[in-house]
Design a protein around this nucleic acid. Structure first.
Lengths: 191, 191
DNA sequence: CGCATTTCGTTGACATGTCAACTAACAATA
DNA sequence: TATTGTTAGTTGACATGTCAACGAAATGCG
């Protein structure tokens, strides 16, 4: 018997195969693993299916949406998120720190990224009136046109490849489930 | 009324606010957007909740699991996936192209990455016996020890932050739902 | 006020991923 | 076999993200 971690290979041709092994080594062969693997609660069949499915969906969906967005609008995901958040903010302007926190980006990442977006004319930095250290990011006219044109196509893409594939019940459960996990992870950051 | 894309801001303090606006500009204010936005089917309340929730969970979960994995095992997600797939393959060896395709990575990315992992002694390249152009990747002893020790801790982390937060029903629906989307996206690649 | 501490954002060095050009070997065919 | 096209993988240039060090301004407190 060949050694393996998280083997638990199920019959060929079943759903697990279609899902593939991205993010594997989480479904265990019980006590097949010696040493450090003792007493580990590997994922069960349904759990493994959900976890691997999530991982694979995530990878495939990312590739597809990124491809669509670049082709349709010439924007990266990161570009889109920055423009989208700016477009939804009051007066199309945001403090850098607030934007970074909201997007879960480091300040450094945001700073580098908006430098590049600034060179393309999509956004502009401004000194912050209320805080001498700070800076605000604003949407340029070109940035506004870009997000206004990109958003409908992006929603189409999200619908075609994701939302419209799901039943109302699946969407309801997904919303409920993600909220639960987001709440949990949010508490970790704080506490 | 200030211009915005995908506004549809709902009452402050409700679930949408907790989720935040990562990946926004998908819930529309109907005909509030002029020009290119006409006739777009923006996401409904439940749809927006699911989509934004998915986006935010994805971001937070990624941060947490990456942090845990680095702290507990000194590996990146990419390292873990490579080692995991190798450990599950017959004789701990895989053709580079096969591995890249399975992980949905470019060959280039894999080539660069295993060069770095090779320098750390986790994997080794070999000439492929059956194809003179090809190469195989193999797990070194150190790589085997690394994944054997990392896997249980990683499963713990996945359980703590994700799987164990969900009900059996939520897990069932998630597995079903991701399989649907994966099937759809798989057909796109081929067709 | 004067001084230490914290916060805001930038910067440069480095790690990682992408893209296109490239070499070598296989495959198909005349 | 010689030619042509295809496939496997590598490489270097460049784009992007991370990390720690930094300067400047705000804040806290004697």
């Amino acid at each position: 018997m060949s050694e393996e971690v998280g083997g638990a290979v199920r019959g060929a041709g079943d759903a697990a195969d279609a899902v593939g092994a991205v993010g594997s080594a989480v479904r265990g062969a019980g006590d097949a693993v010696g040493g450090a693997g003792e007493g580990v609660q590997w994922l069960s069949g349904e759990e493994g299916r959900a976890w691997l499915g999530y991982r694979r969906m995530r990878a495939l969906l990312d590739l597809q949406l990124t491809r669509d967005l670049a082709r349709d609008s010439g924007l990266s995901d990161a570009d889109y998120d920055v423009l989208s958040n700016l477009s939804e903010s009051a007066e199309h302007r945001l403090r850098l720190g607030d934007l970074a926190a909201h997007m879960l980006w480091s300040k450094s990442r945001l700073s580098h990224h908006i430098t590049r977006m600034g060179q393309r004319g999509l956004v502009a930095r401004r000194d912050c009136p209320s805080d001498g250290r700070g800076a605000e990011l604003t949407l340029t006219d070109a940035g506004w046109e870009a997000i206004k044109s990109a958003a409908p196509r992006h929603v189409d893409s999200v619908r075609r490849h994701f939302i419209d594939r799901l039943s109302a019940e699946q969407i309801r459960v997904l919303g409920e489930l993600t909220e639960t996990v987001v709440d949990h992870l949010g508490r970790i950051q704080d506490g």
